[in-house]
Each structure stands twice: as C-alpha cells, then as structure tokens.
Design a protein around this nucleic acid. Sequence first.
DNA 1: AAGATTGTTGCTTA
DNA 2: TTAAGCAACAATCT
Length: 293
Amino acid sequence: MPELPEVETIKRDLESYILGKRIVQVNILEEKIVKNRNNSFVSILKNNSIKAINRIGKLLIFNLTSGEKSMLVHLKMTGQLVYLSGKILSAGGHSLNQKGGVIEQIGGELPNKHTCVVFVFDDDSTLFYNDLRKFGYIEIIPNSKLGTIYEKFGIEPLTNSYTLGNFKKAIKTRKTNIKAVLLNQGVIAGIGNIYADEILFLAGVNPGRLVGGLTGQEIESIFHASQKIIKKAIINRGTTFSDYLDGRGKKGNFVKLLKVYGRTGQKCNKCGHDIKKIRLAQRGTHYCDFCQK
DNA sequence: AAGATTGTTGCTTA
DNA sequence: TTAAGCAACAATCT
C-alpha cells in the first residue's frame, strides 16, 4: 500500500533517472488505467519529456516539458513504477536484452502480467507501470487544473507549513475519531492505514478517541509521532507489506520496524500485551490497548 | 468459498 | 452548507 513515504521514495528514485529524457515510445497494455484517453495520451507524451516530479499526498505529478500539461499517477493499493536502464525486449513472458539473453531483474521479469503501461526513453531505458489489482490510474491534465487538484488536499507533512499550529487548526473542528481524521486526505495529505496505526502507537493514543476529547499534550504527541514515523519510513525506503516496490523494483525496509500494523495477536514490544485488531473508519486498525489510552 | 484487503469517489444522512 | 459514514470498486489471497 503505497502511502506518503513510499510515493516519496519512488519520486526521489525517478528524479534521478528520467528527468529530461525524451520519451520515444508509450505502450498501453491495460486501457482502463489511463483516464480520459480521448486527449490523445500517447501523442502528448511522445517526443516530450519530464521536466519535474512533484507529489501531494499519495499523488505523483509529472510536469511535462512542452504543452503546459502534467501526468498524474496514483498507485492506489498495488501500483508500481519501476525503472530499468538498458534496452528491454519482451518475448514469451521473458525480458530479453538485445542479444536475446534473459535479463535478471531485482523486481522480477519486466514487463510482467501486471504491467499496464510502458514508457521507453531515448537512451533505451524503460519505466513500467504495474498494477496487480488495476486500481490505480494515469491521467494527463492541463497545468491550469493543478490548482484545483492541490486544493483538495490538506496539510502536507513534507512542507514547512506542516507545523504544530497548522496541525491543530486542521484537526480541531473534526467530530470523529483520530484514526479517521489521520486517514482523511483533505485534512492531512499522505497518511494511509499502515502509518495511521503506527503514528497512534508511537503517540500512545487509542485510535478510537474522538478528536474533540484529546488533550493539547496528546495532539502534540500525535503531531510529533507523525513527523518521526514518516521521516523514519522514508529513510528506510518505505514499507513493503505485500506489493510495494521502489523506483528500481526493490522492497522497502520499514516492515521490520512496524510496531502494530499486521502484528495482530503478537506481543507489543513495549509492554508485552497482545496487539489487538478492530475495525475503525472501515479499516483494519491495529493497536495496543495497554499502551494506547 | 465467503470474507478480508485499502484508497478514493460518490451518494445518503444528519 | 458541511462533514461524517457507508457502499462500491478492483482482483487476489486465505
């Protein structure tokens, strides 16, 4: 499940590989992934290049060099963006080099049966969009629409407007539990189910607590925990719980640092009590009812 | 084999 | 008017 730290890792990876490279070929293997295909998706990209990569929450924004347009990529649950250098030829489900030898890849063979879109650059390198559940999307929009896209998101943790004051302001009027608020992209951008649970564990706050009932101290703990967890997750290149891969097809390392997510029934490493799992905000919610009050 | 998995949208309700 | 809450969606795994 790519959340802010995973999407940020991919952004940074791809920045070092694809910026400024001319796109020479685009193959769409899964039509439904590309939204608004009437805007001639392929012809806009061909002979164009990516000028900059931005991110708001879990959404990647590729600014194109010509045409005042941007390509949005949302990975949803199982989307991947994997870059490979060197020429790739595909035959019978195998990735071959120009001499026909099978290429050994970190993320397995590419393209694979989940590959939906393929971008080829003028240095023969390739970017693959893979999506097992085909839930994500790619869409080209005019830059004039970017403002309304950004407006939908709340405060973004990796910007300098992410301050305790702004955090308090953003959450204080909410009438629901803290877990639902952390997941609400219109309040705070980029936190998903894994990091919401991890943040609340580190803050020592029960996910079911109503925001209105939190003390100033608790709100401060949650804010600081969010900064700490997100930063640490990025340093560890994200969490690969099931499908996530970074921009080079490698797994993230944060999974071994998870304290509650996916640890139902296991012992809390702080107090030894069993980690519990309940349903909150229609999501599986993991917590320690001894450590989180 | 039914139920769980999650991010987002869109609809309904309060 | 605004927000909360819930179903729906997709495809696979248990």
